[in-house]
Nucleic acid binder design. Structure first.
Lengths: 242, 242
DNA sequence: CACTTCATATAGCGTTGCTATAGGTGCTAG
DNA sequence: CTAGCACCTATAGCAACGCTATATGAAGTG
């Protein structure tokens, strides 16, 4: 039940913190609990992690490895948008399986200070959306799409966590998921005229080209040309059709 | 600066707590700070509110009054879905104007314990969605729609709060908002698009953009810019894929 | 061996949320 | 007028918290 084994104290502290975090039903976890379970005294903790938050960050980093591993497990299916769906589901599953850890990762919000893990998750999703962008499946720049989807994904997961397990209705998740993916995809009802409501095909094509250009190191344009080119492309991509 | 006036201690405590909460940039607020600012000693706090959390709940309740007042201010416009849009925007505005209070209300998540304020907000939105449902504008039961929209609304607001104020991009909000509302509304014009297998490249994307640009009258670039842009596009389009 | 460096322990500081106990205040009853 | 009785507030202090100044041990290097 305790980690007094022959593992190094740093590892014991990490495991003890993770275990207590998982068991504490939302309540706070004290450094004294952690050090006692790890069979270590206080200064050891601060020597290795500097801070209580430092220790928690380390736990989060380990948890994030697991999260990312889950996100990358299923190789690209050739349909990027389908992969995004699985990323969403994996995100929700991760949150429901380890709610306390998830709350430390995504729920510990402070104004004007973004946890690193959020930025990483966003990058992961943007990366996947880029694949959708180069094939012209995206309606919106990948970054904006990633932020939007991730925001909804976190919101849904937090809401599901607050519900008691037996009452959890996962349809909330799938419905919100499909709504978001549909919204950013170019695969929408659209008349043939480019100036119909919704993004014009110019915008879609510009987004696709933008993503493709950044993925391939084309040497058809000089770097200064490319810079200006990309700026114009950005202007087109982010323009809203009035 | 202090509330030593002749107001009753209960009120002074509430105001002191609210003020300190608003000023503390995410950091914790101690009961001693509160009682000192209120010009009161500790037992008074616990007599009236029983608990630190009890005091915070009271502050939240007051904040929620303000929130609800904002939600109800604009009378029904006859278009329920338009009202939902304004509810969403009001929610985000409330969160950005008083981030600390918002975080206490919606960000203080614990597993399997739903804050009362969330349930209330959900009820408020469901009420409004009911009006849309009776006129046949809804695709989904009002309760599910409300839960889904609110989850995304909270997620977006939390994400915006973590961003530094000058960088906040409200398009994230409007885009997610419209996606959610569109998803639950029944007036969708469904159509499936010819999904080409993903074999796109820079060249294909450039050709698509080229065609699209010439078919539309985009005003995002000046004519001289456009001329150069098209020339570069041509260079990319006619290059061999590396 | 002398010396440095890293890692852990002893003991304790200041602050936290909270409370056992007691004292003051204003009310109504006799 | 006063006795009693709620109600409200203050004094003082507890246990637990995050954290640290300081000292001790172990391990490697000259």
């Amino acid at each position: 039940m305790s980690f007094d084994g022959q593992l190094p104290p740093k590892t014991r502290l990490l495991r003890a913190a993770a275990e207590l975090l998982a068991k504490s039903a939302g309540g706070a976890v004290s450094t004294r609990q952690i050090t006692q379970l790890a069979g270590v005294t206080a200064p050891t903790l601060y020597h290795h992690f500097g801070d209580k938050e430092g220790l928690f960050d380390a736990v989060v980093a380990a948890g994030f490895e697991e999260y990312v591993a889950g996100e990358r497990d299923f190789a690209p299916s050739g349909q990027p948008l389908e992969d995004i769906r699985r990323m969403w589901d994996n995100h929700v599953q991760f949150g429901l399986k380890q709610p306390e850890l998830y709350l430390v990762m995504f729920g510990n919000i402070r104004p004007e200070s973004r946890p690193a893990v959020v930025a990483d998750a966003e990058g992961l999703m943007e990366e996947m959306l880029n694949k959708a962008a180069v094939t012209g499946q995206l309606n919106v720049p990948p970054r904006e799409a990633a932020r939007s989807i991730l925001a909804a994904n976190v919101g849904v997961t937090l809401m599901l966590i607050t519900e008691k397990a037996p009452e959890r209705n996962l349809e909330l998740s799938t419905m919100t998921r499909d709504a978001m993916i549909f919204a950013v995809s170019s695969d929408q009802a659209k008349s043939s005229s480019p100036d119909s409501s919704g993004k014009s095909s110019v915008v879609v094509a510009a987004i696709a080209l933008n993503a493709a250009l950044q993925a391939s190191h084309s040497d058809q344009l000089s770097s200064s040309e490319l810079k200006l080119f990309l700026e114009w492309l950005h202007r087109i991509s982010t323009s809203s059709t009035s």
